[in-house]
Design a protein around this nucleic acid. Sequence first.
DNA 1: ATGAAAGCGCTAACAC
DNA 2: GTGTTAGCGCTTTCAT
Lengths: 349, 349
Amino acid sequence: MSIHEVARRAKVSIATVSRTINGVSTVTPQLSRRVWRVIEELGYYPNTQARSLVSGRSRIFGLIVSEITNPFFPEIIQGFEDIAVQNNYEILTTSTVHDPKRIALSVRRMIERRVEGVAIVTFGMEEALFDDLKSRKIPLVFIDVGPPLPRISNIRIDYQHGIREAVQHLAALCHERIAFISGPLILKSAMARQRAFIESMEEIGLAVDPNHLIEGDHTMEGGIKALKKILNFPKRPTAVICSNDMTAIGVMRQSYEEGVHIPRDLSLVGFDDIRLAQFMIPPLTSIKMSQTEIARMAFNALLSEVQRDIPSPDGTEYVLRTSLVLRDSTAMAPAGARKKVSVLKKSAE
Amino acid sequence: MSIHEVARRAKVSIATVSRTINGVSTVTPQLSRRVWRVIEELGYYPNTQARSLVSGRSRIFGLIVSEITNPFFPEIIQGFEDIAVQNNYEILTTSTVHDPKRIALSVRRMIERRVEGVAIVTFGMEEALFDDLKSRKIPLVFIDVGPPLPRISNIRIDYQHGIREAVQHLAALCHERIAFISGPLILKSAMARQRAFIESMEEIGLAVDPNHLIEGDHTMEGGIKALKKILNFPKRPTAVICSNDMTAIGVMRQSYEEGVHIPRDLSLVGFDDIRLAQFMIPPLTSIKMSQTEIARMAFNALLSEVQRDIPSPDGTEYVLRTSLVLRDSTAMAPAGARKKVSVLKKSAE
DNA sequence: ATGAAAGCGCTAACAC
DNA sequence: GTGTTAGCGCTTTCAT
């Protein structure tokens, strides 16, 4: 069943049917009604493939995420889908599972389906893999990747803000030996978070023991491994900040295993503030990076780029701020670990 | 850049280019090489829209899930994508968020994109909403929905097996008052799980207190509410089985809040065995329903239906078995709650 | 205001 | 073995 069938039954030309569907104003109300009636009767839905073939616009945006099974991403996907639906866009989601081959394949799939734009939520992985997209002048939006370029927008995350809050919060609780479990340092974003941690520590006059910078991998298993390492240090940290919540969940899990009580023996701060964080035991204090906001910004970046006739000269930069959400996984540092002069005083001098 | 451009540069007809791309054997190796070289040089990717328009095959499968933010589903989506990619299919995923309007919209989006088949992983919600798909004779695969029909496959979940194991496990630990927190009972699958629980209890000679059948909603919040109710019962259950893991996580969370220790004061069993279950505190004993298997079965059901010339007369039924995975959230019933004669003996009589 | 017809990028049937 | 050509279902001129 095609537009011809509708035209035949409504006794009009296919052009009129097309105009009716697309709300072209010139169609007589009377004809329009007749056409719509037939459309309803038939349950006719236009063929999107044909439409995009002729219009040159697919109304599809691609969405590339690193790992759909990491709870951080589904929230972004849902947010993206919600706005896409409102704007009559379809969304082609692919999960790279951190595999360069899969990324290349994703890119290929996107191009073959002629997406109008792609949101790349892999937090700085192998930017070169997206060159194919760039050279085709397809609008792109990255998270946290370099300065924006023509047709390429960037959502910059203000890690510093939330991480500084976390460090200061811990300092106020008299923690001095604070460890940081990073993500894989090949990721620009993981690097940026670690740097923000170091700067926040220095800013407040706290020493960063290089041993206390542990490279994790943003998974629960990584958190487990990292905690094992930490517990073996001669001078154990009294608090740990993780580069994402999954890592923190792993840390919690292993702490339970080892009889380390959170927050009594160890204070813990996560990053991302995924929904799950508040349901952990104890509820996890975390640095919020709104997934809904990211989705919204990414979609709008793409949409506005597509709607523009001339591409923005330098792309657009959006900024998302992070901030600490206090829950129950942090507490005063164990008495034995505190110095006479509290850190707060020191920093107030 | 189209097939014409390739043809022009390779000095052949577009038909030859098409044949080359599609591996039609008649093309001379020499010409084939020439064409491929131009394709590489140009970075040419065929336009999928045009291809499906003419071939009448979109190579897209739809995947409708209830809630992408529930960790159960991303695993299915990932599994589905993995096989889809291997088979050169694209996947159009939509999340219904339990909203009938969204379901209807999903269906419409699927039809407009001319998907070749749809996997419906909503566990028995509002089957009628998919009538539009059915009437168009689009191959469908449901989870746990009625007997299969022509072009409609069904993956039946053998809830009984896993749930019986759980009940017997608890009984062996001398639990007698076992509660069940169900999902929303409008869902066929939630109903089926509850029924399996009741049958398993009866089978073993344990009474089911109707008060101990609590209707939840498959969310963490639902688990929290349900536990509050349970703690108010005059005769508290000593064990709880949940209709899914998210509910169980809510229960754990609220138990912590109320000072109820799991498993000492309350044994807990989840359902689904999502990856997260093993990272809970304590690690959650759960009834496994393999998400990867579901994805695999669903995809293959669709694929085999599409590849068949004549539709299978009655669709196909697949069966997935569930089974208990023991971890640390269950323990012996508190001494005070046990009767003199143990249940095990009773059932052995 | 409506219809006829061209053409989007591709495949496949048909010629040669 | 290769080229020519007729559509696939639609939008959009260009006539009328």
